[in-house]
Simulated assay, not measured.
Amino acid sequence: MTATKSVIFSALVLALAATAGQASAKGCIKGAVVGGVAGHYAGHHAVAGAVAGCVVGRHMANKQAEAAAAAKQANPGSATGKPN
C-alpha cells in the first residue's frame, strides 16, 4: 500500500507541476513536497500535507515578493547597484 501511495503522490506532484504556470507555482511545489513528506510521517496524511504545504508556500512566496517590491520602491538605486 505504501508504494501505491508514493506513486500516487508523485503523480500528483508532477501533475501539479505540469498544470501550474511558473508565476502561480512559485512556492507551491516546494511547499507541497515538504508538506507531503511531513504529512506522511505525521499520520499518513501526505495529500493533506501537500495541499497545506502548497498553500503555505504560496503565502510565503507572495509575502517575500511584496517585501522585495517594497524594498525596491523605498530605495530604487540599491537594486541596480548604483549609488543614490
Rank of each mutant, 00 (worst) to 15 (best):
A79W: 15
L12R: 08
F9D: 00
P83G: 13
K30T: 11
A15K: 05
T4R: 13
A61C: 02
S24G: 00
T19C: 01
A23M: 10
A32F: 06
H45G: 02
G27M: 10
A3T: 10
M60Y: 07
A61L: 06
A68W: 13
K63Q: 13
S10Q: 07
G39C: 01
G27I: 10
A11E: 12
G43D: 03
P83W: 15
K26F: 13
A79G: 07
L12D: 00
G77H: 15
L12T: 06
S24D: 04
H40R: 05
K63V: 11
A18H: 09
G49T: 00
A15H: 08
T4P: 00
M60C: 11
P76E: 08
E66G: 13
S78Y: 15
A74T: 10
A3N: 11
A38Q: 04
T80G: 06
V7Q: 06
V55S: 05
V7D: 07
P83R: 15
Y41G: 00
V13A: 02
I8R: 11
Q64T: 15
H45Y: 10
L14T: 06
A15D: 10
V51P: 00
N62D: 15
S24L: 09
A11Y: 14
I8M: 12
T80A: 09
M60F: 09
Q22G: 06
Q73W: 13
A69D: 12
A20S: 08
A52E: 02
G21A: 03
G77S: 15
A17C: 06
T19R: 08
V37S: 04
G57I: 04
A71P: 00
G77A: 14
K82T: 11
H40C: 01
K30G: 04
V13T: 04
A69S: 12
A25E: 07
C28F: 14
Y41V: 03
A71M: 08
P76F: 04
K82Q: 11
F9R: 00
V13I: 09
L14R: 05
A3R: 11
H45M: 05
K82I: 08
A38C: 02
K26T: 08
V7N: 03
V37D: 01
G27K: 08
P76H: 05
C28H: 10
V7C: 06
V55L: 06
T2Q: 13
